[in-house]
Design a binder for these strands. Sequence first.
DNA 1: ACTATTTTCGTTAACGTACACGAATATATT
DNA 2: AATATATTCGTGTACGTTAACGAAAATAGT
Lengths: 351, 351
Amino acid sequence: MKNENASGIKEIARRANVSIGTVDRVINNRVGVSKKTKEKILQIIAELDYQPNIMARMLASKRVIRIASLIPAVSNETGYWNAPLNGINAAAAEIKNFGVSVVHYFFDQNSKGTFVEQANAVLNQAYDGVLLAPMFENEAIDFLARCREKRIPFVLINSDLENESRVAYIGPDLFQSGYLAAHLTKYLIREDQKVLIVNISREIDLHHHLLKKEEGFRAYFNKERSDIAIEKVDIKNTDYESLKQLLKSSLSTDRFDLIFVTNSRVSSVARFLEEHEIHDVKVIGYDFLEENITYLKKGVIDFLICQKPQEQGYKGLMSIYQFLLGSSPIEDKEYMPIDIITKENYIYYKN
Amino acid sequence: MKNENASGIKEIARRANVSIGTVDRVINNRVGVSKKTKEKILQIIAELDYQPNIMARMLASKRVIRIASLIPAVSNETGYWNAPLNGINAAAAEIKNFGVSVVHYFFDQNSKGTFVEQANAVLNQAYDGVLLAPMFENEAIDFLARCREKRIPFVLINSDLENESRVAYIGPDLFQSGYLAAHLTKYLIREDQKVLIVNISREIDLHHHLLKKEEGFRAYFNKERSDIAIEKVDIKNTDYESLKQLLKSSLSTDRFDLIFVTNSRVSSVARFLEEHEIHDVKVIGYDFLEENITYLKKGVIDFLICQKPQEQGYKGLMSIYQFLLGSSPIEDKEYMPIDIITKENYIYYKN
DNA sequence: ACTATTTTCGTTAACGTACACGAATATATT
DNA sequence: AATATATTCGTGTACGTTAACGAAAATAGT
């Protein structure tokens, strides 16, 4: 009675009349095994529908996968990036036991310099993979080119660059989310009414992100041949005082029935409306942030659109990890669901 | 040079001047270790913030966790239960390597007998845990009482029983989802218009599930002191012909501007409206099913509400597993998000 | 035909934990 | 004080895999 209950690699070895070492070689397709025995083993593996035991594999493997994340720091202006960071950390915790170490690099959304700095720091450390939020388009392209040279794979989150060599993009379909906002708009106002689009962002680079949403928004009305009038205002100084002045002048020259804010700064607009006791203007904006929810509850904001920022971080890290493992194939583009948040369902929303 | 790089249990043993066996005893709090050394080891564990290596633990442990799932079979009447099943299977696949085996038991939604039968089958097999969709209230309560006797923990999904001994409930907040439907209704019709609520379900037991939604729906209009008139019709014969007759008579006596279908059978109503070329009636219903999406795309259905059926299955299984592991604490109630699906965002929806 | 080299393969020690077995020590019983 | 019993502990093997090392076999070069 020897081989009563062999399993896994050992059973394969027994059936193929070879040692476990040889089986290991073909499973991890290393060199040093003859074509004949390799095929034999491969066939047995197929017969047995053998799945390697992850536990044992991780335990025995000394390999460490090092991943760098390069995303904006949570600023006091908007807490948005807190969510993706949480997602990344959650994923990191889950795969810690699988020999993965994640190092965070943060840059300032209002300063290209810090991005370049941190990007260089990443490149100096020879990581196995990179998770990037490419906020500054040109600088990001530069960085990614250098990653490619060094053969460091990368995953993009939050906004896409259509880089042919990226492993994956995980984030919103910006155009479509603007399109949905327009659809919701139709429920809120009549055909003879007016809409104001508000883009709030300091760095011009970030504007392309917002413009995609605006495009989607306008596309809807074009397609529907609607008579609703649309105007827009770009606000580059993100402090509340500047915003107040600009809004004041916009709203004085014209009367708008709905304001569509293309990012998470919608709470500033809501604050303005509340302070000036303007109650008959509907508001649609973005993101599940505390400030925004406050105004949603009060009824100042009607709809928030949110695209699972936390999940973006989580899935982003998981993608680059999966890719580095090399086992399962990766979706090269995963658009997040476009969630509609209202007064009635926000309690149950999961970022 | 001996102990250059010890880690985990071994390092603890080294620092405490005991063997790894002793450390193992205190970690898994087994008997047979003196109070003094136990405290010493416990302190070192705290100092080191020691986290056992799950890999090694699972690998070494021969324990097998056996879980039974008891949910409705996917019927030809509605494919709803396909989603939770997928979620359960996904979770099962993920934890297969952790020594978990899941066995499915299916019952017919239209037959209490099959439920009792399958429930007995589960009890005969001495499982470590049970995942249950308690569709038939009384029979489910019976079954759970017997589980309790046998000390088999259980998790409920899809609808709750407020059973004090359940490990957790994962599923919708039915009342609130009806409430949200009412809010959406307000966007679709005017104050002087009329709403028809349609409950479609064969077994009376299942009706309490639908009634909760209806309650939420009505509660909203009560609170808003709305003038919108609400009527309702219960349809117990779920075949299309019977439904057609009932709808025909309802719609002939009165004119309704919006129909709220309290479950996934909304596609039948949509089919009726399409066949009879009724275009000016708005429709709100439930669930991301192919049939429903078809009518959503066509514009016959305006909103679908969906509560992540797949995730219910996934999280349900994970909860019972986590509980049986006994490591992390379990949330005893997790309500799913209440998602709003429209023509514009359904493409990106994840069940 | 003999050596040198390459290719193919087996053996073995880890990885961190669980658990059975038995040894050592302490405590109780006469 | 001697023995019986209970308590506390150490040792060793196993889990399924990885990876280093070196032995054996095949091939190449003279």
